[in-house]
Design a protein around this nucleic acid. Structure first.
Lengths: 340, 340
DNA sequence: CTGTTAGCGCATTCAC
DNA sequence: GTGAATGCGCTAACAG
């Protein structure tokens, strides 16, 4: 391993017989340089394999072309798809992406943020920030020094930009769709510890109450709702509940739970959608890989990511904070049908 | 948005009434400082919200605490899980992770690499490098300047470290397992354009030939094998092939294809595993979410990532290049059973 | 123990 | 058009 130092601008200058300033000019193309010298410099660059040192450049321009992204984890395809959206958009602006996993740990989340700040990123996107367990001043202070965008954040903090879905409206739409198919006994399946579930539950309660058919036994919380174990734990739980509650449809707060519900129905000998309808939320890729393909509400993960990236670059350029709310759209597939 | 400049080491020094060197010492804790002054400095740091500028530090220590990761895309959970492994390991060494997607485009892949080099990363991990379409000298030159690790790379380049699975052995194991269940007509399903598939096919051919039951019609290539559309395209294809070839088992080169095979069987009214066995490869999370749960070969994605990270830090510290080959392990679940 | 100083690699005035 | 000089924020000798 030849530890031959990488060539610097000085080396190039020497080889080309010019000053470093000139080299800088041809590299950045921001000032006129005589064609002949430019060519001399360029061949020097090539033979030396010279690559400008971005750190040094950014140190003295006090700008930075990398942004930070903090995500709860990659195990969940939801986040992976969001990141995909961020990456693609951000690349078009010539920015690079520093990725950190917070592992659902608030302390870790703060560590990640600090690491990003010290790396001098020009902005940060946080997916599902744990605003409940981090004292508000942390993010409030942070946003004074650096542009901040939250994806799926529910506590409003001044000056941070938000991208999210209108899940209240989305749940209502889902419920109305099921009712349109004639369903009245709709089981509501949620997980623990996320504002997202709370919002959906509220929407469900409100809607069912309006129609005078709210029953507490139709609401079930299956605990941790975001891991791979979610599928199995949902199934186990519903194996008991379905026979008791006898719903004609099941509305799940995310697709993992819906797949669990599907598996439970299968074991109970219930045909989907003939005997019972199952509906998910998110539209992760999994939902169209299984049989029957899942009817679900699309959370536009990719869009979430690309919008967040756009908002961030806007703030970096000095724009003000903004809030973008996307509409969930109903994806009708094969797991739902008319009540029989 | 208060564009109050972030505090620098000079500001802290002034406020604490000491020299910048002293501040540097308490920040890095590498030289003794009198308790009293240390405390003065620390309070200054806190009131100023001082965060050291890593770029500046690394510029003059000529070290870098970020590494680069190039991945074909995030849409495939395989890669997401590998990255998860990298991230976790790398964090323990205090390194940050710069993520780039090559989108299966060789040109893009080279761009990503160059961007990483100019950002002065201390090493690069490439997942499934496109060594076929990138001229060999590119990586050969690169590794002269910067430590390099390939995950699932098949062309050997001197001085780069490799992490991969023994897929040749793994396929053989899978085949033997199926044969142990009494299967003789085993359909082989592969995708296009990946050395990984070629290795498995070779293993299949060899094995079947040994037992004198190699039949060309039992080998099928379903084209693109890594996207979400893979499931459906595999299903469509097998819907035609299964009735003709009448296999008692199907061996698929990855889990997406296996799920497609499962769906095809369902449509054909074949019960799995009673009527026909289906086997996948990879053990992505999807494989244990569907019904029946898939029997598959575990590619240890997380381990792939963490081992690659370990190899990289080793090289960064001056170690030599290495090759790690993990063994695929058979995960027996519900999609396979004895031939009837 | 602590302060002074010299760069790290580069972009940018300001002269020429 | 081009070169010399300055400084970005920080660490690492080197003196005290």
């Amino acid at each position: 391993m030849e530890d031959r130092k990488n060539a610097t601008i000085v080396d190039v200058a020497k080889m080309a017989g010019v000053s470093v300033a000139t080299v800088s000019r041809v590299v950045n193309g921001n000032y006129p340089v005589k064609v002949e010298t430019r060519e001399r410099v360029q061949t020097a660059i090539e033979t030396l394999h010279y690559v400008p040192n971005v750190q040094a450049r950014e140190l003295n321009t006090r700008r930075s072309s990398t942004i930070g992204v903090v995500v709860p984890g990659l195990y969940n395809m939801f986040f992976a798809e969001v990141i995909d959206g961020i990456e693609e958009t951000v690349r078009k602006d010539g920015l690079s992406l520093l990725l950190n996993c917070a592992k659902n740990d608030p302390q870790q989340e703060m560590n990640c943020i600090n690491a990003l700040v010290s790396r001098n990123v020009s902005g940060i996107i946080v997916i599902s920030p744990n605003t409940a367990d981090i004292k508000e001043s942390f993010y409030a202070d942070l946003v004074k020094r650096i542009p901040l965008v939250f994806i799926n954040g529910y506590h409003r903090i001044p000056n941070v930009s938000y991208v999210g879905n209108d899940e209240k409206l989305g749940s209502r739409q889902a419920l109305e769709y099921l009712e349109g198919l004639g369903h009245q006994r709709i089981l509501f399946v949620r997980g623990a510890n996320s504002d997202s579930y709370a919002i959906k539950e509220e929407s469900y309660r409100q809607h069912m109450a309006e129609n005078k058919r709210l029953e507490e036994q139709l609401i079930v919380n299956i605990g941790e709702g975001n891991g791979v174990e979610t599928v199995d734990s949902t199934m186990a739980r519903l194996l008991e509940i379905i026979p008791q509650a006898k719903p004609t449809a099941i509305f799940c707060c995310n697709d993992l739970m819906a797949v669990g519900a599907l598996n439970a129905c299968k074991r109970l000998g219930l045909k989907v959608p003939e005997d019972i309808s199952v509906m998910g939320y998110d539209n992760i890729s999994l939902s169209r890989l299984i049989e029957p393909k899942l009817t679900t509400m699309d959370q536009n993960m990719f869009q979430l990511g690309s919008n967040a990236a756009a908002l961030l670059t806007e703030k970096i350029k000095g724009g003000k904070s903004k809030r973008i709310t996307l509409d969930n759209v109903l994806i009708t597939r094969d797991s739902t049908g008319p009540v029989r």
